[in-house]
Structures are given as C-alpha cells and as structure tokens.
Design a protein around this nucleic acid. Structure first.
Length: 581
DNA sequence: GTAGGGTTAG
C-alpha cells in the first residue's frame, strides 16, 4: 500500500487473524497464469449447425415436465397442480422486476427527493445519461441538487465505469457549494478500489475525508477491502480488518464476505471455508450472501456434491438459500453441460417457495444457446411478448452473441430490430455484439460508423474489438486514433487490450519500440502489471526476445503509477526481467 | 421520505 493514507502499523488485535495470516497467500497474485478453474469447453460450432439443420435433433427432454408456479406468495411454498410444457411454464412466470421509468421522464413533483428517486431508478436501469439529464434539469430550473442527488449521479457514473465524468461531477458538486459527505467519499473509494484497483488513489480519498473532518466508517473500509480482495491482495485486506478493530469500527458480515470472496476467486476453497469458521467464532456468522459466494466457487470447480451438502446443512447453519443461491447453482450446472440438472432445479426452487427471476431465465437461455438449441430459443423469443415473459436486454444479448458466434449475421440483425420494436433499449453490450458481428462479416467501415455515430457509450470491449480488427487490417492510423480516444474517454485498458496491442505490434515487427510507447500511454493497475509480466513470460518461452526498450517501458509505467515507492511490484518486475535473460 | 460496502445471468 503506497498511498498517502498514513496509518501507523497496528498490533493485531485479534490473534486468530494473525494466526490465519501466517497461512495465507502472499499479497500479490500468483506469478504464473492460473490454471483455469472453469468448466470444460463449449460444444463446437459444427455440432451447433448440425442441431439447427435437423429439428429432430432437438432434445425436448431438456424441458422436463415442469410445474406451473402459482401466484407468488413468499410465505408459502408454491403448488404444482399439473405438469406442463415450457411455454406454459413461462406464461405463469412472474418476474421479480420493477418497471423502469420511461426515457425522458421527469418527476411530476418538483422536489429534490422526487428527482433523486427517479435518478436512482434510472441509475439502477443503467440509464446514466438519463440520470445526468435530470441533474441538469434541476440545475437549469430553480431547484438546487443536494448532496443526495449528487451522490446518486456520481454513483451511477461509477457503476457505469465512467470514471472521468464521476471525478468531474464530484468537483462540480464542491464548486457548487455542496459539501461532500461520508457517502460521497465512499463512492469515490469504491471507484478507485473496486473499479480501477488504484488503491493509492483510494487511500488519498480517505486522506481527503480526514482532512475534511469526516471519519471513515465501516462502509469505507469494507469497500477498500472488497477491491483488495478482488485482486488477490488478501493480506493487505486483513491489515485493514485489524485497523477496523483498532478504530472501533468493527468489521461486519459484508467485510468478511468480501474476504471469503477473495479466497474463492483464487480457488482457495480451504481458506474460504476456514475463514467462514472464523466468522462463526467471532459471532459474525456467514449469511446467505457469504454462502452464495462459496457455492459459486464450488460450482466453478464442478464440486456439485459439495454444493448439495452445503444446501443440506443450511438449516443447521442458520441460513436459507435464496434465488441467487439457486441461480448460481443452475449457472454452474449449465456451464458444466448439466442442462438437465439445471432445469431440474427449477422445481426445487419452486418447492422452496422461490420464484425464478429474469436472471434464472437468462441462465437457462444461455444454457440452450450453449447447446445451440436455437429452435427452442427461437420459439421462446417469438412467444415471449405474448407470454409476458420479459426476456430483457440480457436475454437478447445472449442469443445475439451466440448467433454471432455461429456466423448468423442476418439473424442477429433481425433480433436487434425485434428488441427495439419491443421497446427494449439496446445497451453497450448489444452494440458490442453488433460491432463484433460487422467486423466478422467484413464490414469494418460500418462498424466504425456505428462506433463514432451510434450514440452509445463505448466500453473497453468496444475498443478491444475495433483495435483487434483494425490491427488485422494493419490500419495503424485507426488503432492510434482508438487508443487516444480511449485515454480521452477515461476507458481503462484491460489485459485483453494489452494482449491485442502486443500481438498487433509483434505482427507489425515493431515490438520493442511500440511496446515501450504503448506502456507509456496507460496507467496500469497492479494486477495488470503482473498479468502483463506473465504474458511476456509466456512470449519469452515461445522464443520472443525482449530488449531494454520493453523493460524500461514497464518500469517507467510502474514509476508513473507510484509503485516505485512501495517497491514490491518493482522488485517483482526486476526479478522477472532477470529471468527473461 | 432521498445517497455509500459483500453474491447470481449476457
């Protein structure tokens, strides 16, 4: 931790944490690419096409006789009057989904609270531009946005990963005379800790809080801990747990769940389980969210026997599986090709009084798509409107993505039109699929036009897609323009970006020079640096040679981000460089 | 009565 936050080393107030720490992994992610923990590969495209060309190949047994859920009554288990087909099942689904406000709507009551409620609803629906429109509308009239309104708007920008705008709006709030409160700062901490993994900046925010006489609270620390755990820096996360105790701000189940999640992300299920036992011993037992995290990790490695055991023991352990638990379980089964078992879980959910949500349906849709069971999918899509089955943008994206994978561009276009006709707003991912589709179909020109004129906010995937295809065309001018726009828009590159750029530069035989240039353009997170080193290591094994340009570039990038002061990452890099030679 | 932290789908 190299940020400005000045925290004296605290003696660990809890021996158990200290004892546990001794067995924990080091704070940096493992040096080598981790072995994929995921499921076996998807079915091949050729088998997909085969199933499409012969309807007999459809497997109706994928839709086992399923019960009709009775109207939702959360207090009593659903009844199963009779067996029915999949279509009838969906007819009876009541999706737990509130309606979103229509685009362009304004609150009828001209009051900050009314505005804030609508802004929050738009933010929840991912309509950040609508949130900003309402904020401007307030400012343009005689209503002054208060700290709640600003917090809502900044938070929605952060959730959409529009970090530059979030920072600007925070400054605008201050210059408008609205004093940020603890929640405002916590939103910024979340941005730096959980979205860009710039922990030094997150700590600077906490410094600012203190300077402004605001005391970091449990949310502040939990947010910081969440980010650290997401990049595998569990040891440092535990340091902050110790600080929380020291500061009389005891960690909560949220704090601990973030740590369990950290272990799970590393595939370290033993420590995850031990940490859950530790939670029990601290009278802060794991709750349903903690168990959901654990169930997900078990699913990823295909330990469904263990999942069953965890569910069986739930009553004994004092927690109740919820919809997320079952969705997670179903998703795991689908990913491991156990479609039948996943569909079978619908019945179990209903028996337990849980109603499937739009997420459940999207998981099952994805399941069908993975099996390229497009006839079944098509049937559901065509009838979804009359069935009142709210498939939503995620469902459409799922199907469009898979259709794009198998080269059915025309069907992607038809679905796009279909969703727009139904009033479903395409999102960034929809555009990404569309752009990817255009690129694969050889119409890079139209893809570019859509990117610059399409009126949507591009994310890192959009940039990656276009950079990849322009590189294949050896169009360095467009690549350069995209890189500059990416920086200007505050879109952070991810490991895929680095990978594409390095591959592209190698193809252009300008490896050393261009990599150096490239490394100088971006600010990298610790995780990205480590992954980049792994990438270089892999390339080294394949016979690529590196020179001082490359290593200078990495070290300069590290120093730019301030890592030279902390030393750990720098030492790691230098160690790595020595192994390359 | 309004804002911020842990989990699921594309």
């Amino acid at each position: 931790m190299d940020g400005g936050l000045k925290l004296a080393a605290v003696s660990d107030p809890d021996d158990a944490i200290g004892a546990l720490r001794g067995t924990l992994p080091s704070s940096l992610p493992p040096l080598r690419w981790r072995l994929p923990l995921g499921p076996p590969p998807r079915p091949s495209i050729s088998s997909s096409m085969a199933s499409l060309s012969s309807p007999e190949a459809l497997q109706p047994e994928l839709w086992p006789p399923l019960p009709i859920p009775s109207p939702i009554d959360k207090d009593s288990p659903a009844e199963f009057p009779e067996e029915t087909s999949a279509g009838d099942l969906y007819l009876n689904f009541k999706l737990a989904r509130g309606s979103d406000p229509p685009i362009g709507a304004s609150p009828s009551r001209r009051h900050p609270i009314a505005y804030n409620q609508m802004m929050k609803a738009f933010g929840h629906a991912g309509e950040v531009d609508q949130v900003l429109r309402l904020l401007r509308e307030m400012k343009d009239s005689d209503l002054t946005p208060n700290v709640f309104c600003y917090n809502t708007a900044i938070n929605s920008l952060v959730s959409a990963d529009r970090r530059v705008e979030a920072e600007e709006l925070f400054e605008e709030m201050k210059s408008s005379g609205v004093r940020p409160n603890v929640a405002s700062y916590n939103i910024l901490v979340k941005m730096y800790s959980c979205y860009s993994f710039q922990f030094d900046k997150a700590c600077s925010v906490i410094d600012d809080m203190v300077i402004n006489r605001l005391r970091p609270d449990s949310t502040t620390y939990s947010t910081l801990i969440t980010g650290l755990c997401r990049v595998g820096r569990i040891d440092e996360a535990l340091d902050f747990v110790a600080i929380m105790w020291e500061e009389n701000c005891p960690p909560s189940v949220q704090t601990f769940t973030a740590i369990v999640h950290g272990f799970c992300l590393q595939g370290n299920l033993d420590d995850a389980r031990r940490f859950m036992e530790f939670m029990d011993s601290k009278q802060c037992p794991p709750n349903v969210v903690t168990y959901n995290v654990f169930v997900e990790a078990l699913c990823k490695v295909g330990r469904f026997d263990q999942v069953e055991k965890v569910l069986e023991e739930s009553k004994l352990k004092g927690w109740k599986p919820n919809v997320v638990t079952y969705n997670t379980y179903m998703n795991g089964l689908c990913k491991w090709g156990k479609a039948r078992d996943a569909f079978g879980l619908l019945k179990v959910m209903l028996e337990n009084g849980l109603c499937p949500t739009v997420v459940t349906l999207n998981i099952l849709l994805e399941c069908l798509c993975q099996e390229s069971n497009f006839l079944e999918v098509k049937y559901l899509l065509e009838r979804s409107y009359e069935l009142k089955w709210d498939i939503g943008v995620v469902g459409y994206n799922t199907v469009m993505s898979r259709l794009s994978d198998v080269g059915r561009w025309w069907d992607v276009l038809k679905l796009f039109v279909d969703m727009v006709k139904k009033g479903i707003n395409p999102n960034t991912r929809t555009f990404n699929i569309f752009i990817h589709c255009l690129c694969k179909a050889g119409n890079l020109c139209l893809a570019k036009h859509l990117f610059y004129k399409g009126g949507f906010v591009a994310d890192v995937v959009t940039y990656n897609t276009l950079i990849h295809w322009f590189y294949l065309e050896r169009n360095e001018k467009e690549v350069q323009a995209l890189r500059l726009k990416m920086v200007a828009e505050g879109v952070s590159p991810n490991i895929i970006t680095y990978s594409i750029l390095i591959k592209g530069l190698c193809r252009g035989r300008k490896f050393s020079e261009a990599t150096n240039l490239f490394l100088g353009s971006f600010e990298m997170t610790d995780w990205e640096v480590v992954e980049l080193l792994n990438l270089l290591e892999g390339m080294g094994r394949q016979g690529f040679t590196f020179d001082a340009f490359v290593f200078n570039g990495i070290i300069r990038a590290l120093c730019r981000k301030g890592s030279c002061q902390s030393g750990d990452l720098l030492c790691l890099t230098i160690d790595k460089i020595l192994t390359f030679r």
